[in-house]
């Protein structure tokens, strides 16, 4: 059981998303930084899709009611256990009664808290992700508040047996953390309507810095730069959008669609963020800036497969580390 002492800015239950229902207008939701979410789960011996808590910028205060393994992956929001700074991207053995709190954001803005066994909330349409607008999924369809009691599934026996050993010994390993820059180069493929933009805009999208506006959330990041414009006005017919679609409304400021995007959109899409670079975008804060660099579809799919291979290897290394604690 996790007792929420303070809620933080926005703490929600997420998994890898709700797929198969977008044709009914049900948004995908899920972790904004799927890579960090997956690694956090693997570090505590969970399946990658187990539910975690997505913590945003200003972290919550959480009390653990029993001994439990946790991992914190994603942005470094200065996590502390009972006031003592702890490391991210590694498993931590936490004693019952301990409190997890956060401080200033050092890098990124979203941190995933995985607990051994996973966060226990009912599945809605095959997913535990929170769908805030429809008020379904996650913890009663909403962000966590003070005094909420969030269940964790039981810690597997093999982990409990390792608890004494793991907590007495300062663990000296962690998985490599991605670099979350405040001005990353984000690779993008040309979008379905790239050719409808005027020549200048087609160049500017790859030349300019774009700032993340304060009007950015889990649905999408509104960017500000030199406004982009179409060669000639076009009435587009609404069609599907995807995680990382970059659409440009009439004001010329691009919007990168993220985890809570609507299923369809009617604005022209100038580009699409490469799947491997989505976390670089999701971890940006208002005021940070990014630059786009072109990538081909083939290259993007190759990098995605490469990353998958890397995760598979990390999974094996993590299992071997756990063996040492047994």
């Amino acid at each position: 059981m996790l007792k929420i002492i303070k809620s933080g800015l926005q703490t929600t239950v997420q998994d890898l998303g709700r797929y198969g229902f977008q044709k009914y207008g049900v948004i995908a939701s899920g972790a904004m930084d799927p890579y960090a979410h997956r690694l956090a789960n693997l570090l505590v011996g969970n399946e990658e899709n187990a539910a975690t808590l997505e913590i945003t910028l200003v972290g919550p205060v959480i009390e653990f009611e029993r001994d439990i393994f946790i991992a914190l992956c994603g942005g470094d929001l200065s996590p502390k256990i009972d006031g003592k700074k702890v490391d991210t991207w590694r498993p931590l053995a936490v004693k019952g009664g301990s409190r997890l709190s956060f401080g200033a954001p050092i890098s990124g803005c979203r941190c995933y808290l995985a607990v051994s066994g996973g966060i226990s909330v009912p599945e809605v349409m095959n997913s535990r992700s929170t769908y805030l607008r429809a008020e379904i999924g996650g913890f009663h369809g909403r962000a966590l508040k003070a005094d909420d009691l969030v269940e964790a599934n039981p810690t597997p026996a093999w982990q409990l047996a390792a608890f004494e050993k793991a907590s007495s010994k300062e663990t000296d390993w962690k998985v490599p953390a991605p670099h979350y820059s405040v001005e990353p180069v984000v690779r993008m493929m040309k979008g379905r309507q790239y050719d409808l933009f005027d020549e200048e805009s087609q160049e500017n999208i790859f030349a300019d810095f774009f700032f993340v506006s304060s009007n950015s959330d889990r649905m999408g990041y509104r960017l500000e730069g030199t406004p982009l414009s179409l060669e000639e006005p076009a009435e587009l017919i609404s069609e599907a959008v995807a995680f990382g679609s970059i659409q440009v409304p009439a004001d010329g400021n691009p919007i990168v669609l993220l985890a809570d995007r609507q299923t369809t959109g009617g604005y022209p899409k100038i580009g699409q963020v490469a799947s491997v670079d989505l976390p670089l975008v999701s971890q940006l804060k208002p005021g940070d800036r990014l630059r786009f660099e072109e990538i081909t579809l083939e290259e993007s799919q190759r990098l995605w497969a490469e990353q998958e291979q890397k995760i598979r290897q990390l999974r094996i290394s993590i299992q071997l580390k756990w063996e040492e604690w047994k």
Partner: peptide
């Protein structure tokens, strides 16, 4: 196949690129 999103004049087909490339 992961899922589809039908619209007015299009059907978007989401696929697992680890199982099959474009």
């Amino acid at each position: 196949l992961v899922e589809i999103i039908p619209a007015f004049t299009t059907v978007a087909v989401f696929y697992n690129s680890l199982s099959a490339g474009y």
